[in-house]
């Protein structure tokens, strides 16, 4: 049976891609951000996931306003990145796991989540940069991926509560997968930021830190917020917190915080990182 080793949630802003491409990880501006990642990489080296199920929003590379699914699941054998029009280099293709993707799709639909199924799908920086942060160096990716997109482009957005329930359902689907694979669940985006209008640059550190704490011990607490609340508290694009909530919700029992890191700013955004070990999986391995 499949094992969920844990969850990693991280910010994904495009400028991280430029910083990596230009080897600026140790520049004074970037170092406090990149310094958060080595402990999580060390943990990943220990738990060795085979597959990453990634909750994120596509910013217009695969989906545009002509067709915008609220939730979509990729079921392709391979996912390619492409020119997103803002100058960040594209990365190597990522292998998929179509059998697991279809199992998740079937489980979600049986669970009454009316998701969109995609046998071809481009993946944007919101999937590729988190992979590059976890497994740097530009080599072959050590994980296969199952991309799950959530609409954060076009309102009305899904609610935090619905996003959380989606994550719970995906967690149950993974737990019931027959293959003996180790699965990491990722959530990317956030934390507080606003890119547009006169409120651009809005950051809410107390709110971000409260959310990071809640995601460890009391994640359901965050489901009382509406999308509107998140726009107000975390900025117009800070609604991406919902991807973190979905990734956390996939872990059903107790978790142990492996590492967390928070730094302002990365470009316009509060950079956050949280890694959680699934205690149930750790016990199963020890037994």
């Amino acid at each position: 049976m499949a094992t969920i080793v844990g969850s990693v949630m991280t910010s994904h802003v495009p400028s991280i891609g430029n910083a990596i491409a230009k080897h600026r990880e140790n520049d004074p501006y970037w170092k406090p951000f990149f310094d958060g990642y080595p402990p999580v990489r060390a943990w990943l080296d220990r738990v060795k996931p085979d597959v990453a199920v990634v909750f994120y929003q596509d910013h217009g590379l695969n989906f545009f306003l002509d067709k915008m699914p609220t939730f979509a699941v990729g079921a392709a054998p391979e996912y390619r990145n492409a020119d997103e029009g803002w100058g960040i280099p594209t990365v190597k293709p990522v292998k998929g796991d179509p059998a697991l993707s279809w199992h998740i799709i079937e489980s979600l639909v049986a669970d009454e989540f009316d998701i969109t199924m995609c046998q071809e799908m481009k993946v944007d920086h919101a999937l590729t940069l988190p992979l590059a942060l976890m497994w740097p160096g530009g080599g072959d990716w050590p994980v296969r991926v199952v991309p799950i997109t959530m609409n954060h482009v076009q309102h009305p957005l899904p609610s935090p509560k619905r996003s959380y329930r989606l994550g719970e359902s995906v967690g149950r689907a993974i737990a019931s997968w027959k293959e003996d694979v180790r699965v990491l669940v990722m959530g990317t985006g956030g934390l507080s930021h606003q890119l547009d209008g006169q409120r651009a640059g809005f950051i809410n550190k107390p709110f971000d830190l409260m959310c990071m704490d809640a995601l460890v011990d009391d994640p359901k607490k965050l489901t009382r917020y509406s999308a509107l609340d998140l726009v107000r508290e975390a900025g117009a694009q800070g609604t991406e917190l919902m991807a973190w909530m979905a990734a956390r919700a996939a872990l059903p029992g107790r978790v142990t915080k492996v590492h967390s890191h928070y730094h302002v700013p990365i470009s316009n955004t509060a950079g956050g990182l949280l890694a959680l070990q699934n205690d149930g999986a750790a016990l199963a391995r020890a037994a």
Partner: peptide
């Protein structure tokens, strides 16, 4: 131009001033 340059245009402040605001913790709550 970067996102930060666009943000400085949208908020009507010079880019270096906008960047300094972000380094100081961002636009206040």
């Amino acid at each position: 131009f970067s996102f930060q340059n666009l943000a400085s245009k949208m908020t009507g402040v010079p880019e270096d001033e906008y960047k300094a605001m972000m380094v100081a913790g961002g636009r206040p709550i």
